[in-house]
């Protein structure tokens, strides 16, 4: 086993390092800056160069950070390690590990759909592929982002006619900027941002990502009784139901997530609209990627791993689920929204 599971997380013995550890370790290779993958307390952090600013923003400026540029092979003990783009959010990486005569790839979170706000997914041939399985059910089939953003825009315009603010909930890192990128040609006024979304958006801009014009929803020019009826406001899910929301009065709310593909999830959240937009691979994306890596052994983690494992075994793969404390896909939702709720 080039990579094994320990209580701290995925561990590579040959190179003596962990990937996305959940407990503090000496050396952590971090796939991306989402809170369920990047945790504080590690002695040394290794990630892609564009993850640096995001990690420092989330974990503090003091972290001991080492950049591993995409495609560049470095030695960790007896292992050769390189990072490759995962297409999930800015700087997100897959980790390729070569040791004991085998090649293993840990996908982290990834998607195959086009996304101009981050580096595109790269297929990395390997013997064993450790894949995420957040949306591993054939009911998940993403519509094109153009269609989704068009319907977000149409919803915003309809709310303007009714004189209502439009509050769009999406994760503050990745999803928010992807929406802002796609709104570039549609937005005719600055999109307003929640305080948790703005600094991450600023980092994206500094990395040269083109986004629609934005402004802070609440800034030093904000007056009492400010009229938001013409505005689109992007906020993290955790802001829902907080006093911060009161300023928008009677508003229309929507949630942007892959989970919105299922009507039951839309209704459970109690928003007016649910837009299907995910930074994870849909079912076809997962199956296609597994095939393209050429791997004969698949280890599935996060979400619907049991289903993916059974499906692959029936097709002749050696497949297993990796159990971790963070097995549930919903964990990600909640961890993300809790953390962001606390910041509001």
């Amino acid at each position: 086993m080039v990579i094994e599971t320990r209580k701290e997380g995925l561990y590579c013995k040959a190179g003596d390092f962990y990937i996305d550890p959940v407990r503090p370790v000496a050396r952590a290779v971090v796939t991306h800056a989402h809170s369920d993958h990047a945790r504080s307390g590690n002695e040394m952090y290794y990630a892609s160069p564009r993850s640096e600013a995001l990690l420092r923003k989330r974990l503090g400026n003091q972290i001991d950070f080492y950049a591993l540029p995409f495609g560049e092979q470095v030695r960790f003990g007896d292992a050769v390690v390189s990072l490759h783009p995962a297409g999930h959010v800015l700087g997100s990486a897959q980790v390729r590990v070569q040791a004991e005569g085998e090649v293993w790839v840990v996908s982290g979170d990834y998607k195959r759909d086009a996304d101009p706000t981050c580096e595109s997914f790269e297929v990395v041939p390997c013997d064993t592929f450790i894949t995420e399985a957040t949306f591993a059910l054939p009911i998940y089939h993403w519509p094109s982002i153009d269609a989704v953003v068009e319907s977000i825009h149409a919803w915003w315009m309809a709310n303007r006619i009714r004189g209502r603010a439009s509050v769009l909930f999406c994760y503050s890192l990745g999803k928010a900027q992807r929406v802002l990128g796609a709104l570039q040609d549609l937005a005719d006024r600055p999109v307003l941002l929640h305080g948790a979304v703005a600094p991450l958006t600023q980092i994206y801009r500094e990395e040269g990502i083109q986004l629609a014009p934005t402004d802070l929803a609440v800034n030093d020019r904000t007056r009492r009784g400010q009229d938001y009826s013409q505005d689109l406001i992007i906020a993290p899910p955790g802001a829902n139901g907080t006093p911060w929301m009161r300023r928008f009065g009677k508003c229309s709310s929507a949630f942007c997530s892959g989970w919105m593909q299922v009507r039951g999830n839309r209704r459970r959240r109690g928003h007016d609209r649910g837009f299907v937009l995910s930074d994870h691979a849909d079912w076809e994306g997962l199956i296609r990627t597994i095939k393209e890596t050429g791997a004969r052994r698949i280890l599935a983690t996060h979400g619907q791993s049991d289903i993916l494992v059974r499906y692959l075994r029936e097709r002749g793969y050696e497949a297993d689920a990796i159990r971790s404390r963070f097995d549930s896909a919903r964990q990600e939702d909640d961890a993300e929204s809790k953390e962001e709720g606390a910041k509001t």
Binding site: L137, P138, I139, H141, Q261, V262, R263, G264, Q304, I307, R310, Y311
Partner: peptide
Amino acid sequence: LWMVEECYASVGDFAETVSLL
């Protein structure tokens, strides 16, 4: 069939499962 049933269990509505699958 097992996959159809897993999908149905996840969606909770047969008609919606059809329209998604």
